[in-house]
């Protein structure tokens, strides 16, 4: 049962939308593509510069509009600031920020090095914090804006070998809730999606068949999500249809604790 790709409805017409880690095969690129299709002016960033250029070309050929593409490693505060400066210089404002950048890994804690722990936390949690902070510093004076963070159901559930990644994603959820309270008086919304299993070629490559079968069995639909199915929920949270939602972590799907 393959779902059908949705037609565009202009949900993000004219919204300047920044998506981090948008050059891969997963949720980031799918989000940038769906946002562009919904009328957004898209800014994409990624740590991997050659792949970023390829992603920009791919988006241009799909949507007919070339996105601004800025290399950015979210573990570097100066690179995050440069990314926001480049977007503001080009378009004068940022209406939507999608914090998609994250880094996983598998290691049981007894064997885990400090470096393994820190690297996952720095990209996944600290990177989201840095981009959220930069976004708020721009959005608060304008009294408008939307932030959507990419969390994961692993922030809720127990899984061996994922202590660092799960702690980081649980952190993203807590960050989302707390910052939403600070941002709401300024007319800014902050929400997160928590994908369960969104399949793409990279994930297929790094996951064992057994684990994949086990994870798939947990899914209500008995299959993994297409990355664009998660992107659809991100688009919804970024759009005016979610005007009364903030501080929420939306499970995609069926694995809310």
């Amino acid at each position: 049962m393959t779902p059908s790709y949705p037609p565009a409805h202009g949900l993000l017409n004219g919204k300047v939308t920044l998506v981090t880690a948008a050059a891969g095969a997963g949720i980031g690129f799918a989000t940038a593509k769906r946002c562009a299709e919904e009328g957004a002016t898209v800014v994409i960033s990624d740590r991997h510069e050659p792949r970023l250029g390829a992603a920009a070309d791919a988006l241009t050929s799909i949507t007919g509009v070339k996105p601004l593409a800025v290399p950015c490693d979210v573990t570097s505060e100066s690179q995050v600031l440069a990314l926001f400066d480049a977007a503001l210089e080009a378009y004068g404002r940022i209406d939507v920020v999608v914090n998609n950048a994250g880094l996983g890994g598998t290691a049981e804690l007894a064997e885990m090095t400090d470096e393994q722990w820190s690297t996952v936390l720095d990209v996944t949690l600290n990177g989201t914090m840095r981009c959220t902070r930069a976004a708020l510093r721009h959005m608060i004076p304008r009294r408008t804006g939307v932030i959507v963070n990419n969390a994961s159901v692993i922030g809720w559930r127990a899984q061996r070998g994922q202590a660092h990644y799960a702690a980081a994603k649980a952190g993203v959820m807590a960050l989302t809730r707390c910052v939403a309270m600070e941002a709401a008086p300024h007319g800014i919304r902050v929400n997160a999606v928590a994908p369960s299993l969104a399949m793409h070629p990279f994930l297929a490559k790094v996951t064992t068949d057994d684990l994949l079968a086990e994870l798939t069995a947990r899914e209500a639909f008995g299959r993994s999500a297409e990355p664009w199915e998660v992107a659809n929920v991100i688009v919804f949270l970024a759009s005016e249809y979610a005007s009364y939602m903030t501080g929420e972590v939306v499970s995609v799907s069926s694995q809310h604790p």
């Binding site: 002016t41 378009y91 004068g92 721009h138």
Partner: peptide, 28 residues
């Protein structure tokens, strides 16, 4: 800007211009 356009604003006085551009979301 509210209607989703990309807007350039010009003015003579730089400080006032930059403040307005940042507040509204325009290019100064």
């Amino acid at each position: 800007v509210d209607a989703g356009a990309t807007v350039y604003i010009s003015a003579r006085k730089k400080d006032e211009l930059d403040a307005a551009a940042a507040e509204l979301g325009c290019v100064a």
